[in-house]
Design a protein around this nucleic acid. Structure first.
Lengths: 246, 246
DNA sequence: ATTCCAGCCATTGTATACGCTTTTCGGTCC
DNA sequence: GGACCGAAAAGCGTATACAATGGCTGGAAT
């Protein structure tokens, strides 16, 4: 069960110890952030998993300082939860949070459709079709991690076509969190955006039919949300107050 | 020009130096974050102002470590810009960014209106009217800082009534950035949400007229955006390539 | 046998130290 | 007189050290 799943990079080239102290550390940290973020989104790190600073520092060959920075960024994006003296763990979204995230996606992604239909280029459509195809392939091959990741990438890429970097960034965060929600509330075998939904959507957008794309995206997201089994699990904090208040 | 505008808190009670090492540091950092954030939103720290880690650490009586954490959080919220070896400075929003932010506000804040009209309570309305009143007072008294802050608070509070914490948080960030945009592109004397717009809006919401509130909010935000003078200042990076390419 | 308490250990929070890069200031050369 | 180059200083990036807290385990008492 050793989590050697991370690429530790060839740190043997460092010689020994703390030689290359300030060697383009920024990019290094960005790569580590991506590694952890990907592992969470692809469910290789499941909700509730503890993320110990020492362990991560050793795995990636950097000091705890850098890991802490990354963990705090992930916490701000709601991908990990930082409990004051307990450290970091992968966020386990609540039912309320899941509803909020999907409501937000419904509003923003649908609202973006008309503008996207106006601005989409041929290259965009080609890239999107490629992603949709790879997603179907991954699903058929049983690679759920890859499929989930590609689905999130599809929606993120789509939003970026709108040209609004702020909204695109927001959608990106929403998609990441949706991946976490799928990990907790998703039914195995029925996950993510199946069938040819994404292909159909590209068709509407290429035709410049923003309204139809908007309606379709609405149904698409509602279908995903409806496929979740949101059992309000009250494992921790069994609501003693409520139980004994009557 | 000493920036002693920050409350340095009574650190004399500490005795001398590094005595209270781990005394509820979390809350302390939260307070420092609020101080800096407020100073930026209220334009006491203007866009472009440099935020040196050493200086901030000394002013607030903590070490650079804590300041760095706060600065990184502010950077993620687009309130400060972190240039790799230069340190932090208050973000100077570009024209594109300003457009993105206001487009995002238009979509999200308007989209939230129907739900807010459905859920608004009497206490909400009272609190909102109070904020609107204080904002008008501040404007009349010439306290622009306070007025800007109250205007952002009003919109933020409004969004929180929707019950969607994710969207409310997004709107909060958008309002903070709007304050920065006003600092750069706003015309003095004509700033922020003037007149009785906010009061009118509360009226529509109390009447449960979500559609009318939505339309009104749309006009309100468009009016603010239109009042900006977005001169595409190309001071830095004088586009040498474009100039000499012809 | 179970529960409570105490001490230890694991792990985070904070500060400080050090190296590297960038900037700025002063001197010299053209 | 101006421009270029070198050195010093200032400030950021990273690592490491230390302190404190919370959980966990072992033991004892009921």
């Amino acid at each position: 069960m050793n989590q050697r799943q991370f690429v530790a990079e060839g740190k043997s080239s460092d010689g020994g110890g703390r030689s290359g102290k300030n060697g383009d550390g920024t990019k290094r940290h960005e790569a580590i952030y991506q590694s952890i973020s990907d592992a969470i989104i692809e469910h290789r790190l499941k909700p509730g998993a503890r993320l110990r600073e020492d362990a991560l520092a050793e795995v990636f060959g950097v000091s705890r300082t850098g890991i802490r920075k990354i963990l705090q960024r992930l916490a701000l994006e709601h991908l990990v939860t930082l409990t004051p003296r307990r450290g970091a763990s992968v966020t386990r979204p609540t039912a309320d949070e899941a509803k909020d995230v999907f409501d937000a996606r419904l509003m923003v992604e649908c609202g973006l459709m008309p503008e996207i239909a106006r601005r989409i280029t041929d290259e965009d459509a080609i890239a999107l079709r490629d992603m949709a195809m790879r997603e179907r392939q991954a699903l058929r091959a049983g690679e759920q991690s890859t499929a989930i990741r590609l689905s999130a990438d599809f929606h993120t890429r789509l939003a970026s076509i709108s040209g609004n970097a702020t909204l695109a960034g927001f959608v990106e965060g929403l998609c990441s969190r949706s991946s976490l929600i799928l990990a907790v509330y998703g039914n195995a075998g029925h996950l993510g955006c199946e069938s040819h939904d994404h292909d159909d959507l590209i068709g509407y957008l290429e035709a410049g039919n923003g309204e139809r794309a908007e309606a379709f995206m609405g149904r698409h997201l509602k279908a995903i949300e409806a496929s979740l089994s949101i059992h309000v699990e009250e494992d921790e904090a069994p609501d003693l107050f409520e139980i004994f208040s009557g």
